[in-house]
Amino acid sequence: MAAAPPDLQLLAQWREGDLAAGDRLFDRHFASIHRFFRNKVGEGLEDLVQQTFMACVEGKERFRSDSSFRTYLFGVAHNLLREHYRTRRRTAASIDFAETSAEDTGIGPNTLVGKRREQRLLLEALRRIPIDSQIVLELYYWEEMSASETAAVLGLPEGTVRGRVRRAKLLLKQQLGRLALSTEELDTTVGGLEGWAASLREVLAKADDDES
């Protein structure tokens, strides 16, 4: 994994106070970090994205020279996410990332943007597997990170990550199957909504006529 000089150069310039450089770096990675948090938290998305970048420039997290800026950034994001969940659940017993899913945390997704049905199902399935598994899979599928990059983000041995990816895929596949099946079984569409909307138009016209 080759280091990406431009990223690191921009980071150095930003740390010197060059806001334009910071802006470029931010723009380059915003979409990834936004995606990372979006499917996991409801409230606080904006803060988490901002904190992630600010933590980088302030150097609060130690930067390991053998990793890329991107893995560093995701590492910071990952820690902040854990911290976020912990804060939310301060009163409850400590949250176990290996056993709890984003769905379980009771936090609605900020935006599930998949437009097509199968996309939505996948996003939903991702939300319903344990957060650790969700993160591993999203880094794998979305960010196309290798096992060693993912290991750098999560601060785990590479072998552990490989095992986790495999287990996560199985969990995802299972969830996906269940979701697909259960939504197929249901007859929830009342079928009258269009007619309902049309009838309201008439009601509205009368409400207005009555006023005039």
Partner: peptide, 25 residues
Amino acid sequence: GAATDEELGIEGQRLRARLRAKMFG
């Protein structure tokens, strides 16, 4: 497609603009 910029959505784009204004003026 789920990971493209288009899929960032208006909300995502707004958030980006807001943060850029906040962090970099």
